[in-house]
């Protein structure tokens, strides 16, 4: 009689690697292969469903057959080690980047990063948004020295490919070439809806510098260097009222 450790090890190898060592552990009624196949299918189908939900753009770009092949390879390479699969798939963009068969679709990596950012934003931690009223009272010096943080659900993406357009039209863009054109995107979930916004390059510079922990003054400088004509105040006010900034924990405003 095999130990539980041996049985569970062989069972997992049977599901992931297709090893048939587990079959001799099963009761011999001539149907062991069909019986074990149910378990193998359940694992692969359920993980495929999890990743298809998390990566709708990648699935639309690849089509079902190729996407299934990608997932099968990914499960073998990086199976989930967590007890639930809400976090599973974080490594898929890097896996795509290393995939030789997908090297002729270089935009796919950033599409996967965008999908993952949206997936992560949905369940990200909450944070109290920075209020515009508090800032209106501040002197210019103090305002420029402020270091607003982005809320936990926020991800900035800078791609050499038009990832916002690809995300919007993934169903139509699956076939054929996509011409390189840089696009920058902010993914966030200020309230209950995940937002995916196309950013002006100067706007991206502003937010990136803030995310790096620098002051509003330094962020404004970076934005102006990117595009001197850019209307910085309007962009900042827009993001502020959309609720994507929060106070750093050591910078809570004094309660009145």
């Amino acid at each position: 009689m095999s130990t539980l450790l041996e049985i569970q090890s062989r069972f997992a190898a049977g599901v992931f690697q297709g090893a048939d060592g587990i079959l001799s552990d099963l009761e011999d009624d001539g149907r062991q292969v069909a019986r074990f196949e149910v378990y193998r299918n359940n694992t692969h189908a359920s993980i495929l469903e999890v990743l298809a939900d998390a990566f709708p753009t990648v699935q639309a770009l690849l089509g079902e057959t190729l996407f299934t092949r990608l997932v099968t390879a990914f499960i073998r390479h990086a199976p989930s080690r967590a007890n639930h699969l809400l976090d599973y798939g974080a490594e898929l963009p890097d896996f795509i980047a290393l995939s030789e068969p997908l090297a002729d679709r270089p935009w796919l990596v950033d599409a996967a990063r965008l999908d993952w950012a949206r997936n992560a934003a949905y369940g990200a931690a909450e944070a109290a948004p920075m209020g515009a009223e508090a800032l209106q009272e501040m002197a210019a010096d103090a305002l420029l020295a402020l270091r607003p943080a982005l809320i936990p659900s926020a991800t900035l993406l800078h791609s050499d490919w038009p990832i916002h357009a690809i995300w919007m039209n993934a169903d139509a863009m699956g076939e054929g070439e996509i011409a390189p054109r840089a696009e920058m995107v902010l993914v966030s979930r200020p309230e209950m809806q995940v937002q995916t916004s196309l950013l002006h390059p100067a706007e991206h510079a502003l937010l990136q510098v803030l995310q790096d922990g620098e002051t509003l003054g330094e962020a404004a400088l970076a934005a102006q260097q990117t595009d001197p004509a850019f209307d910085l105040m309007t962009a900042f006010a827009g993001h502020l009222s959309a609720g994507i900034f929060t106070h750093r924990s050591n910078e809570e405003p004094k309660q009145a």
């Binding site: 009689m1 095999s2 130990t3 539980l4 450790l5 049985i7 569970q8 090890s9 069972f11 997992a12 190898a13 599901v15 992931f16 552990d25 378990y39 359940n42 694992t43 359920s46 993980i47 999890v50 199976p79 989930s80 080690r81 967590a82 007890n83 699969l85 599973y88």
Partner: peptide, 29 residues
């Protein structure tokens, strides 16, 4: 049921409720 492979072989989640052998060892675990 069990869901995860033994830590000794990597601890991967099989994301399914898997069967146990009807043994004393399995009951005590």
């Amino acid at each position: 049921a069990w869901v995860r492979a033994p830590a000794q072989v990597g601890g991967a989640s099989l994301n399914d409720l898997l069967p146990l052998p009807c043994t004393e060892e399995a009951v005590s675990i």
